[in-house]
Design a protein around this nucleic acid. Structure first.
Lengths: 134, 134
DNA sequence: AGCATTGTTGACGTTTACGTAAACGTGATA
DNA sequence: TATCACGTTTACGTAAACGTCAACAATGCT
């Protein structure tokens, strides 16, 4: 009988779920992002591992390196114990926050352009397809 | 007398302005993103080049590769001439748009976490600094 | 004239994030 | 029992985006 949900996952399951290769998952482990247990020599991934994998992928999508992601994990794990680490953590978060806001601006600018360009394109196409007289 | 503003820039000026190295700028040229003129063997950058450089850097910030940025430039330049290219352009824009929206979500999620973590940290610090008697 | 500054062209080096291939183990199944 | 399907380690390969010399102009002080 177990209180916590103890469903586990194989490397292939996770790979399929997140549409990445097993190789990538092993690579994340090499970089210290995951620490699956072993049943014999096979890796067994817990829910916690799965969450970390999700966070890893999200981190990647917003442009973090694997090392930075690892540092975040480490800080998150240890910050509560050490006061000076807390300051570091806050500083890191601040820096990252401004970067993210910059990215937001960039993305909004591009989305705007993308939108108007699309409209232009579509108008052009309308004109041509409609404009060819028989 | 010239109608169009014809201010030009040296590689060093642009490097300083955008806080990158001349090497990087030359690299962008190698990749077909810039086409500065030459005065003798020195590069002379026009306003158009400067704009392209800005767009390049913005593209990078939102995670485009230099090649993708070049393709966008090319499409942007030629799309008006070719109808089939227009479709390609629109498809490319659509794909990128959904990626950008995904990124927006990711960033929002992270910002949210960052915010609450910061609050947690600050509370902890308050408690400790305030909690030490004398 | 001499030296600093700024620029130029190679060309090899580096980091990140995996891909890919070899060579092998293991349990399920036809 | 043979053959998948899935997993493992080890190790070299690769693409992107520059960094980092080296070796050499051209220009501008002083």
């Amino acid at each position: 009988m177990s209180t916590v949900q103890d469903r586990t996952f194989t490397i292939g399951e996770l790979a399929r779920e997140f549409d990445i290769t097993p190789r990538a998952i092993r690579h994340y482990e090499d970089q210290g992002l995951l620490e699956p247990e072993r049943r014999g020599q096979h890796r067994i991934y817990s829910r916690r591992d799965r969450v970390r994998l999700m966070l890893t992928l999200r981190g990647k999508r917003i442009g973090l390196t694997l090392q930075e992601i690892r540092e975040l994990f480490e800080l998150y794990d240890t910050a509560n114990d050490d006061e000076s680490q807390l300051f570091e953590f806050i500083k890191l978060l601040s820096r990252r926050e401004s970067q993210l806001r910059q990215q937001q601006e960039d993305i909004n600018a591009v989305l705007k352009e993308v939108g108007s360009l699309r409209v232009q394109c579509e108008r052009l196409l309308e004109k041509r397809t409609g404009g060819i007289p028989e």
